[in-house]
């Protein structure tokens, strides 16, 4: 019943209309290489001693980068309808706010 299932021709046309094509395999591999490098950096921090105030923001930054990089390229949010992004981000933001407050009430950040 879906666009792609029912009428591949039209759906492809639609894709072109929006002016986006899916990226090439080459591009996907480049993305994966970047992800691998960031992961290596992340794991690298385990072997280097660093104070928490430096380490944790670094780790968080790399994690967020990877998170959104996968979402943007592999989950096609870069090319797809912004509505999908909105759904996903609203879930993420709501979860962050609600559970952030909960962790605050449990004084999680003080101990950390």
């Amino acid at each position: 019943m879906s666009t792609a299932t029912e009428s591949p021709v039209e759906s492809h046309e639609a894709a072109h209309e929006e002016g986006h094509d899916h990226p090439s395999d080459r591009r996907y591999i480049q993305v994966a290489v970047i992800l691998a490098i960031v992961t290596a950096l992340e794991v690298g921090t385990y072997f280097v001693h660093m104070p928490g105030e430096v380490l944790i923001p670094m780790l968080m930054a790399m994690m967020i980068y990877k998170f959104f990089y996968v979402a943007a390229w592999f989950m096609h949010l870069r090319f797809d309808s912004p509505l999908f992004t909105k759904f996903f981000v609203s879930g993420l933001v709501l979860a962050t706010i609600v559970y952030g407050i909960t962790l605050t009430v449990f004084e999680f950040w003080h101990k950390g």
């Binding site: 019943m1 879906s2 666009t3 792609a4 299932t5 029912e6 009428s7 039209e10 759906s11 639609a14 309808s81 509505l83 999908f84």
Partner: peptide
């Protein structure tokens, strides 16, 4: 067809 859904996006 389901193309041209309200949002122009596939239901699935």
């Amino acid at each position: 067809h389901g193309h041209g859904t309200g949002t122009g996006l596939s239901d699935n």
